[in-house]
Design a protein around this nucleic acid. Sequence first.
RNA 1: GGUGCCAUAGCUCAGUUGGUAGAGCAACGGACUGAAAAUCCGUGUGUCCCUAGUUCGAUUCUUGGUGGCACCA
Length: 310
Amino acid sequence: MTSTILKTTSQKIKNNLIVVVGPTGIGKTTMAIKLAQQFETEIISADSRQFYRELKIGTAAPTTDELAAAPHHLIGNISIHDYYNVFMFETDALRISSELFQTKQNAIVVGGSGLYIDALCNGIDDIPDVDEKTRNDLVARFEREGIDGIRFDLKRLDPESYAQVDLKNPKRILRAVEVTLSTGKPYSSFRTNQKKKRPFEITKIALNMNRQELYNRIDTRVDQMISEGLVEEVRSVYEFRKLNALNTVGYKELFEHFDGNYDLDRAIELIKRNSRRYAKRQLSWFTRDKSTHWFQPDEINKIIDLINQQ
RNA sequence: GGUGCCAUAGCUCAGUUGGUAGAGCAACGGACUGAAAAUCCGUGUGUCCCUAGUUCGAUUCUUGGUGGCACCA
């Protein structure tokens, strides 16, 4: 096993961060646990919804048994009422991994949130926090007037960003403008286009399978969530539906159902469809990174061999 | 058994006065730097049921089938 390799020189063998990604429902949790057991290490979650302790069933968070099978980090560590973002994740995940590397050769990262994985592996630029008033005012203006005026502001305030961002995507425009207004410096000036160096190796493993089979798994899992009490879980957070953490597949559809906009069967159908679309978006993200090694979920032995070769 | 109606995309259907076709939903592809399970962009994927006619040309008209539905027996 890698951890037993003799250190023939004074040079320390570099630690390895094993990153497991893939579409929702593919079996990442199970794979991560097997790898953690195999390499005698712990798991850091990179799932932007499993952080929230109130969201268990609908996010398919690891069960009590799974949590007992291998130590997990960043699962249920915050509340839906807390503010959290990808920069905070980068900080947290780096801190935890460096703690693990004190005593372990490998650490496992598992999750489906591409941006978060990217922040951990390549870093994300250090951009000052936007003050709340600037953000709220801008959002209010957007809701009142639409995006045209704000887009025009961006053109004036930060022509470089204007040339780069997706001008049809309000969130991107709002972000660039709020940073510019809040800091007094153009958003583009914070973008370095540089990867941060990491003091460890990274092995990226992605899981995928035949699309139809994956979709069948997703459908089955949604039915399972319903029988495990998803409707009750969603009802318990209904009053907080405006929170960003609840703008999530499995929750937003049931909120609409509670509002009387459609029946439960339709809500379930929509959860399945939106989960499929989410899975596709994840695949788009992960296939872009050419350094990723792709496997079927049952190819555990091949994956172990690959890691041992690193 | 008889009569009538229908058969076009994965589904529900529109349409072509004869020049090989388009909506909705589903699906597919992509982008992505602090809301990311979010947000945004792009793409019709088709033996127009089969057969034989008429025609320069048939998915469209005609004949005969096949399947479905309805009504009458």
